[in-house]
């Protein structure tokens, strides 16, 4: 397993001077990893229940917790410059904008769309759109 590096750096305490580097303590890395595994098991387990619409919400919620753990600890954002965090997180605003508008629009005009049963090679195009 992952014990290989433990022995050599047990002597380093966290207060030590490493220039501008900030090494993550091993226990933190391992704790995050095990939390991630537990959450993975949890999400697979919750998928066995039929929760209807809540399922999507719940599984995305768990995924977001996992993602936050990865970002905060593995990606070191907790100890990083605030600007980097702002830049990264603000990208999700634009993702939300993009997906939000596109979905909103597509749902709003769905009534005018006629779906097609396709099982043959291409034939005529069905999608009035307007």
């Amino acid at each position: 397993m992952a014990d290989h590096a433990v022995s050599s750096h047990s002597s380093h305490s966290e207060g030590e001077h490493h220039g501008f580097a900030h090494p993550m303590p091993v226990w933190q890395l391992l704790a995050v990893f095990f939390a991630l595994i537990v959450l993975t098991i949890l999400t697979v387990y919750q998928a066995t229940f039929d929760l209807g619409n809540m399922e999507l919400v719940l599984s995305l919620f768990i995924a977001t917790i996992k993602a936050s753990l990865v970002v905060l600890f593995f990606m070191h954002m907790l100890y990083d410059k605030p600007l980097n965090a702002i830049i990264f997180l603000s990208s999700f605003i634009f993702v939300a904008l993009f997906i939000g508008f596109t979905l909103m629009d597509a749902h709003a005009y769905q009534d005018s769309v006629e779906l097609k049963q396709v099982d043959s090679p291409r034939s005529e195009v069905v999608m009035p759109g307007e």
Partner: peptide
């Protein structure tokens, strides 16, 4: 591709984003 129930207006959303 509307041939497969895809949505060409979505392409325009993607493109103009």
């Amino acid at each position: 591709d509307p041939e497969y129930n895809g949505d060409p207006v979505t392409y325009q959303h993607f493109f103009w984003f």
